[in-house]
Structures are given as C-alpha cells and as structure tokens.
C-alpha cells in the first residue's frame, strides 16, 4: 500500500516526465521519423510529398556533389578527429604538471567560446591571397602562397577545425585526468616507470571512460559542423565552392541554399537520414570498442 506521499510523488513524477517527453516527441522524435518518411518522397515543402521509393538514395550515391561532401565529412570525422585527439592528449600531458595550467587551458579553450562565424571570417582574413599571413611572408621577402586555392582550401578548413575544437577536448580530458590521485603517479615513478609507461598504465586506464565519452561527442558533433564552413566559403549570396562542402552544407545547399529548384526536402532528408545512420553505427562501434571494465579508485 503506497503512502499518500508516495502517491503524490508518483503523480508529480509522471507530470514532470510527461511534459518534457511531449516536447521531445513533438520537436525531435516526430521530425526524425518524418524525415525518414520524407527521404522516400519528392517534397518541396509546399505540396504534399510524392512517393519516390528508394530513388533519392540511388541518386545520392551517384551525385558527385554528395560524394565530395560525404568524403569531406569523413575527412573531418577521422582526419580532424585524430589530430584533435593527438593534440589534446599532448596538451593534457604537458599541462598536467605545468604551473599556470589553468591559464593555458583557458587560452586553448578560447576559440570554442567564440562564434564559428567570427572565427571563419578571421581565418579568411589570415589566409586569403591578400591576407595577413601572405603580407607577413612578402614582408620577409617571400612569395605569397595560395593557402585557400581549390586544392588547399578544404585542408585549411580542417586545420581551423582542429584549432577550434582542441580546447574543448583538452578541457574534458583534463577534467578526467585531474581526478586521478597523485599517489598513483608517485608510486609509478618510484617503480621507475617512464612517461610513456605512466600514460599507458596509469593515465589511460583511469580516464578511459572520459576518453570514450569525448570520442562519442566528437563523432556526433563533427558530422554537424556547418557554420564555420558556410561562413568561410559562401560569398555574395552563393554557396561555398563544392570542394568545401560537407554533408551538412550539402543538405543546406539542396534545400534553402539558393539553387533552383528550391526546397528539395525529400532529397535532403535522404542525405540526412544516411548521415544519421552513419553516426548511430559509428557511435555503437565506438562504444563497443571502448568498452572496458571500469576501474574503481
């Protein structure tokens, strides 16, 4: 027999859960399910969707712009991802024993606070042919470099993404590492462990769950990157050049990006669904690969 207090608590619990659940269903689950449906249709957002079967998907895999965008998305996910994690680990190791690490961490974290649009504009000022970097090179007697020419522009975007993302992951990893008690390291040092061995046998196992979470966060957020690329490449009302597109920019391009016919929401949904499945699969794989016995300390 539940006490009146328990009954009341249960009722309040139900109310507290029901409201957010409703909002979540209406604004997130519903639209996601609808996009899966829309991916099989031809839909301009005005007329009712017309069934198209799997033709959006077969069209996608032969669409050169989608293939470029997809390749670029993978380059960000894996290329930028690896660079961010190598850098974050390095910073973490250097900063761990450094004095004034709070300040340095703040400096590295800075770009994460600034709007990606501001950063993209700054990146352009820095790298374009008449930009700051080339001005400096010319001043020192060199020749200007085509930093953001058609072959190098995407590489420069990737470098910028490393720069803007690293601080965030340094912060997360350091929070994980900071709670490892000092005496483990003292003990390892007394036993004659090298820096690499300390990382391998103390730091990594004891911060493994944090690394896993960071990897999942990167996987999800890297596929959504949009603002930086758009602000960096779009000009005069036109989309960025298509060698700079990732799939998020692609979705924008075929819907409201200005190309005729506008609003190919069915096609865009198909591409969004494809990416959703990719993220889901990758996250599931990551979780499996990163699964370890949690170490208690």
């Amino acid at each position: 027999m539940a006490t009146p207090l328990e009954t009341r608590q249960r009722r309040i619990f139900g109310l507290f859960v029901a409201l957010p659940l409703l909002v979540y269903l209406a604004l997130f689950i519903g639209p996601t399910v609808y996009s899966i449906y829309a991916g099989f249709t031809n839909w301009d957002g005005i007329d009712p969707p017309r069934w198209r079967g799997t033709r959006n998907y077969t069209r996608l895999v032969s669409d050169p712009q989608f293939i470029t965008s997809f390749g670029n998305t993978l380059l960000i996910l894996f290329g930028v991802g690896v660079a961010v994690f190598v850098l974050s680990f390095s910073f973490m190791l250097i900063l761990r024993d450094m004095r004034g690490k709070g300040f340095v961490r703040g400096v590295i974290f800075m770009p994460h606070i600034v709007s990606p649009i501001v950063l993209a504009i700054f990146w352009g000022f820095l790298l374009r042919h008449d930009g700051l970097l080339n001005a400096a090179i010319v001043k020192m007697g060199g020749q200007p470099v085509a930093w953001i020419g058609p072959k190098s522009a995407f590489l420069m975007i990737m470098v910028a993404l490393v720069w803007t993302s690293t601080g965030f992951y340094v912060a997360i990893l350091m929070a994980g590492v900071d709670r490892i008690p000092k005496y483990f390291y003292e003990d390892a040092e007394l036993a004659g462990a090298s820096a690499w061995q300390r990382l391998r046998h103390v730091t990594l196992p004891l911060s493994w769950d944090v690394v896993g979470v960071a990897a999942v966060l990167w996987t999800i957020s890297s596929i959504k990157i949009f603002e930086f690329i758009y602000a960096f490449g779009a000009a005069g009302g036109y989309m960025p050049p298509d060698y700079e597109w990732n799939t998020a920019v692609f979705v924008y391009g075929v819907t409201v990006g200005g190309a005729n016919p506008l609003n190919r929401f069915g096609y865009a949904s198909a591409s969004a669904v494809l990416m959703l499945f990719l993220v889901t699969a990758l996250v599931a794989l990551l979780r499996r690969a990163m699964r370890r016995e949690a170490v208690q300390f």
Partner: peptide, 13 residues
C-alpha cells in the same frame, strides 16, 4: 544534422 532535421520538421509543422 539534428538542426537540419529540426528545420525540415519545423517547415512540415
């Protein structure tokens, strides 16, 4: 990605 889906959904709504 979620933003795009949400945008699509919002339009649908």
């Amino acid at each position: 990605m979620k933003r795009v889906i949400a945008l699509v959904a919002l339009t649908a709504a």
